[in-house]
Structure formats: C-alpha cells, structure tokens
Design a protein around this nucleic acid. Structure first.
Lengths: 110, 110
DNA sequence: TGACATACTGTGTGATACATGGTATATGTA
DNA sequence: TACATATACCATGTATCACACAGTATGTCA
C-alpha cells in the first residue's frame, strides 16, 4: 500500500516528538507545523501530529490557547519548562545514539 | 513503574533496527548482541531484540543459522544484501533527521 | 546440590503511527 | 452566486511494536 515500509516508519517515532519540542519554542498551531516541517523535508502526517500535540500537552510539555474565537479556530501550542526539560533528555538520548551509530559505521565501513 | 517515560522509549524504536543492521555485518546471536550493546551504553531489552531479529529475517534483511545443534542452541544472525539496502535507507533517514534537528537547535539556542 | 549465567521462546498489554472519514471556515475563480 | 480548493481541526479504527511477565533448557561454578 505505502511506499515507506514499517522499518522506515519506525524511524519517525522518537524524532517527531523532538522536532516538535524544538520547533515550539515559538508558538505555532498544528497545521502550520506540518507545513513548516514539509518545507524542511520532514513529512509528518496530520493524524500523527495532532494527537501528539494533545499528548504532549496532557503530559505538561506543551501549553495551548485558542486564537480568534469567532474566526477560523487555530490552536497555538508552545513549549513549557517541563517540555524544555523533556527536550533536553531526548536530545541527550539522540546524541548518545548518534555516537553509537557513528562508532558502528566506522567499524562496518573499514 | 518504569523510570523511563514513553517519550524516551519512543526514541529507541527506529534506532534499534539500525544498530542491529550495522552490528550484524559480523554474525552474532541475540544474547551476544544484547551484551555487546550494553557494553556500548545502549540498553536493548531481550524481549525487544529477539522479535526484532525474527522480523528482520522474515523481511529478508537478515539470515540465520543454528549453531552446535546438540549443545546449547545459539541462533546466529547476519545481514543480507537486502538488509544492507535497508540499512542504507535507514541511515539516510537518520542523517536527514540529524540535519533537521541541528538546524532547529541552532535557531532555538541562538 | 543448587544458585546463577546463558540463550531463547510464547503470550499478553499499552502506546503510537497512520488510515479513513468527517466538520467547519476561508478564499479564489468562473 | 456557485463550487472547488485550501485551511484547520477532530474522532475512531487498525496494525505494529517495545516491553512485561512467565517459562524452558543448558552450562558453569562453588
């Protein structure tokens, strides 16, 4: 059905969280996040992002507010201090993983 | 229950596949992989790794053979050409993600 | 003998990416 | 005005996966 197999899909899972936490240093709404990431070569499905945003808010990593109540509804999200702490630990994990992969790559390619 | 939250756990998902595909350029068995990764600061649960190995073999990315049939059974896995191709595309994804994260980090931290 | 390490397997459970389908407003254009 | 398309979000369902829990069986060492 899909071009991208499961193994490739799995690569997105942790990554999207981290990207969102980095991006939302400035307040943005869901649809906008999808477009901005798209322009940077990162494809995130709407139906992946919206639940993720709600989940991150539920856990205290993001805060949100509705904008322009009478116009087209936009829900702006922004990272909280708790979210910054989470971002920090995810970044650490990311970097440790990067080191492991680089080390292994050198072994394989030599 | 666990120290590590879901957001942190999610970081492992794509990563483990890639590490295994890199590591198995040399034939190794499951229990050995867990120990080797452990020594490199990467914690992979046995109950995560064993199914992953079977899954990768099922999809043709790994081949396996049982060793020493009458002694303690060890199942040696090794990457196939198909697995190398998969590894290549996962590495590409990894690098693209790395670029995206680095770009965002610079924006956030400046 | 018995504790512990080694080596693997089967069956849950909960979380999540993505699919499908839907609501509602805004905007461009014929 | 009519109608398509873009914008912006949500609800529900399915498949997959990390990890928990529990078990089998052999090897090793005190």
């Amino acid at each position: 059905m899909s071009e991208v197999h499961n193994f490739e899909k799995e690569m997105n899972r942790g990554f999207i969280q981290l990207v969102v936490l980095l991006l939302l240093e400035k307040p943005m709404y869901g649809y906008m996040i999808v477009r901005v990431l798209e322009q940077n070569g990162v494809v995130v499905d709407e139906n992946t992002l919206y639940p993720l945003l709600r989940r991150l808010e539920e856990k205290g990593a993001l805060s949100s507010r509705w904008d322009a109540p009478e116009a087209k509804a936009r829900k702006y999200y922004q990272v909280t201090d708790q979210g910054r702490a989470l971002r920090g630990s995810l970044l650490e994990i990311w970097q440790q993983q990067g080191k492991a992969i680089e080390a292994l790559r050198q072994e394989v390619e030599s």
